[in-house]
């Protein structure tokens, strides 16, 4: 167990914060999309670097990965990866109410990813008294070969990754994707401070 590993209490606390953030984010999304958004309780795993490499290299059928960097105060920063499996992204245009000829498929995936990432992380940041800024989202080219490479070429070394499984169902449309938050060690230490602070308040 590395020193960056979360204790059981910290893990619970984080799960709770993410649940709240996800709940509020989906509420905002429902209003924005002007339709009923059904959200399953997101499943959260924290995985170490090696484990994630293994899981992701098994995920051969990922068709699109959108990456977006985020950074806040107190050294909290990282990169969000939204991983879509085959079929997941087919309904995005319907979901967002775009016309078929409105946007390229790439732009749709980037758009919905950015909305999901930023709504979620904004609410999450509020929970920990922080404020996030974001880099422009980027669609990783040739995902099939490059996801592994991309993870190895990160500008920072990250030791823990938070894997948040999101399942959105929007009225008639169901829509799945995986959100993976890659967080460098400094940020983890800071998140742990914040979690301890919240835990102490109880």
């Amino acid at each position: 167990m590395s020193e960056f590993h979360l204790t059981e209490d910290q893990q619970d606390c984080l799960q709770e914060l993410i649940n709240i953030a996800m709940g509020q984010a989906s509420d905002q999304l429902a209003r924005y999309l002007d339709s009923f958004v059904y959200l399953k309780v997101p499943s959260i795993e924290s995985v170490d670097a090696k484990e994630l490499m293994r899981t992701l290299s098994e995920q051969k059928n990922a068709i699109a990965v959108v990456s977006q960097g985020f950074f806040g105060h107190e050294g909290i920063r990282g990169e969000a990866l939204l991983v879509y499996q085959e079929g997941d992204s087919d309904r995005i245009a319907d979901l967002l109410g775009y016309e078929p000829d409105d946007l390229s498929k790439d732009e749709q995936v980037i758009d919905i990813s950015s909305i999901l990432t930023t709504t979620f992380l904004n609410v999450f940041a509020q929970q920990i008294d922080n404020q996030m800024s974001y880099n422009a989202p980027k669609l990783l080219p040739n995902v099939k070969d490059n996801l592994f490479e991309h993870l190895q070429q990160m500008p920072f070394t990250w030791d823990i990754a938070l894997k948040v499984n999101i399942n959105y169902q929007v009225t008639d449309y169901s829509f799945n994707c995986n959100m993976i938050l890659l967080i460098p060690e400094v940020a983890i230490t800071n998140i742990k401070h914040v979690l301890n602070r919240i835990l102490a308040e109880f």
Partner: peptide, 23 residues
């Protein structure tokens, strides 16, 4: 239409939005 929707999402969700030259 495209930009109105984009700007609307920024106002409603209070989140930033982006548009890259690649798209």
């Amino acid at each position: 239409r495209w930009l109105s929707r984009k700007l609307n999402s920024v106002l409603q969700l209070n989140t930033p939005s982006f548009c890259s030259w690649e798209q």
